[in-house]
Design a protein around this nucleic acid. Sequence first.
DNA 1: TATGAATGAGTATTCATTCAT
DNA 2: GATGAATGAATACTCATTCAT
Lengths: 207, 207, 207, 207
Amino acid sequence: MHDTRDHILAAACDIYLLEGYRGLSMRKVAKGANLSPTAIYRHFTNKEELHQEVLRSGFRTFDSYLQQSLAGDTPLARLRLAAEQFFQFATEQSKYYEILFLTMDHGVEHQVKGALHDDAFVSQRFMEGRVRECMEDGSLKCDSAEEVAMLLLATCNGFFGLYVSKKRKDSKEELHAKYRRMFARLLAGLQPPAASASHPKTTEDVR
Amino acid sequence: MHDTRDHILAAACDIYLLEGYRGLSMRKVAKGANLSPTAIYRHFTNKEELHQEVLRSGFRTFDSYLQQSLAGDTPLARLRLAAEQFFQFATEQSKYYEILFLTMDHGVEHQVKGALHDDAFVSQRFMEGRVRECMEDGSLKCDSAEEVAMLLLATCNGFFGLYVSKKRKDSKEELHAKYRRMFARLLAGLQPPAASASHPKTTEDVR
Amino acid sequence: MHDTRDHILAAACDIYLLEGYRGLSMRKVAKGANLSPTAIYRHFTNKEELHQEVLRSGFRTFDSYLQQSLAGDTPLARLRLAAEQFFQFATEQSKYYEILFLTMDHGVEHQVKGALHDDAFVSQRFMEGRVRECMEDGSLKCDSAEEVAMLLLATCNGFFGLYVSKKRKDSKEELHAKYRRMFARLLAGLQPPAASASHPKTTEDVR
Amino acid sequence: MHDTRDHILAAACDIYLLEGYRGLSMRKVAKGANLSPTAIYRHFTNKEELHQEVLRSGFRTFDSYLQQSLAGDTPLARLRLAAEQFFQFATEQSKYYEILFLTMDHGVEHQVKGALHDDAFVSQRFMEGRVRECMEDGSLKCDSAEEVAMLLLATCNGFFGLYVSKKRKDSKEELHAKYRRMFARLLAGLQPPAASASHPKTTEDVR
DNA sequence: TATGAATGAGTATTCATTCAT
DNA sequence: GATGAATGAATACTCATTCAT
């Protein structure tokens, strides 16, 4: 029943991840799910549909991670939590993370992700929200919330991108530590002088 | 004789760029090079080898962009130039950029890029060099050169990653402006208090 | 209960008519009948059986057309009516007509139609009967009833065959007129000299 | 080289004939030609193309039969020869005959034969030519050449249609005799009274 | 140096059918 | 009576590659 569907979905994820969209073949999925290739069509009308479900399911999972950062007390706490949750998702759900944020199968990808446009923008909008409330309560310097959010996201994504592509072998702890330092360096430039304590004005001339 | 080889390589690039690794088929390359599919095997033992050559050629191009940043007078100027060159490469050679830095045809890609490990690290090492000399001459705060370089690269890569995947429609000028502001924000947190305080224009004369 | 069976049969007819034997798939029939594909097997053991029932239903319909020609007063009138009814069936039930008389899905078709041998001969025998009584009452020249009947049928079938395969665009009226002229020419050679000489109009009053 | 192509074509003919267009599968053709399924694509770009070549080749053969009837001395002799050649083609090249004139795979067939429209009309036009010259020289009654040609063709086609579909087991001689008698009966009605009156044997010596 | 022929594995998808429910 | 799950065979077609020339 739905068991099988999820089973297939999981297999599809694995393959998608290992081999990209073009490598995601119904046969391989079937083999991975211990089914005959045709059985898949009972549960998904199409390769296309299967593919979209993989992405959709990834986005849902990601969203559930992000939402938890709302538990923070203050805007800044929430922003930091968001960064943490991002890390958690990237490491705990690394397959999904790669699928959603690091895969770039030219052309094909765009079309498909285009269909999921709204889901895809979720992180962007969420981060913007966190940044904006920080600026409003003064825990971040006033600036373009959109661009700052993008800076944060770009950096975090870029961080994992480098790690994945370079296949570094850091332990999760080392990675986490590096991630935090990176985020701290980034935040330092975005906070008002008071916050970063010793070097107040530095940040102002960033238009 | 090497003419033909280059001809094939060029055709392969075009296709790879348009259709990704899985879309890169010997047949298509052959057609693009006006040759019979089998003729390619005179010049490349494998699809694999052909693929690697495509990547290598991309890395060489990228390197030529980076090297030009050495024309800067000071370490900081060179760092900024490097960021600029990164932008130029990403926009002028956007297809190569995507191939080298944004493509993540998992599995396949990894193996191949693994084989080109050294080429792939070139940017990382280059950036590290720029960062280190900045720290040595005090134009950047003392910190881990490796991690700071990574932060810079991650951000830049992440920036284009977001742009490509979201298919934003900014003009090149808008994009460039955003990129500069982003880099400025980033640098702000990395420079010593004095630096950004006393030379606020520096951000502007980056051109 | 037989409701469903008929329902299925009707759906099968529609599809067969539109897509021929090879296009007649259980799935499509099921969809057309608003049933699951497996449900059909409650009512027909086979695709084969379903197919045969479709043909049988066609033959029955054809027969009902032919029978009406018996309403004619004289043998010749009945013969002419038979030709008319043939035309009516071919045009009003053109799909059935094609299935029964023009389809030649060699091999498959033969086997199936072979199984329906008797039904298939119905027209032949009927025509023979009409011809024979015409010969007996002198309205047709004495000749081999079998062969003359065959001549008539062959010509009529051939007529529609040409029209269908050449996809002519005559209106039904034009077609009907042509058909009548054709039949008249044919009959002219089969009637005794007196008949065609003295009543040249007879050909026209064929309704 | 071209050997193989012809080999494939022959195999395709056989299958087309036995199983119709929908039954004509590349696999089966390959098996029939003792080749791997993919090998066919070296010689035909498509199933479509293969199919068209089968038809085209049939039309060419048919044409070569028809042309020989031009050897007759008089228009009427040529018309009779044409009928004879039609018979020869239908019996000697029965596979082609069925493919060209008796196959009716609904829908599909139409499109494909549509593409070969001109080839398909060849017999129609040829017959029209024969009929017209007969009318001009008085050996046939004045009438619509087009419609009379159609009558002749329809009858001949219909004749074989009945024989094929009913799978009669007449010997070729019996069949030929029947065919001639049929044609004679037909001609009788089309010739001017004098012709059939004064030479009543003509009908008889066709046997 | 290049080509034409051929192949075997793989691509998505459809189909008739069976089985357990 | 009817369904959902599953299957194995078939469909056209593509691809990387080999071999003889």
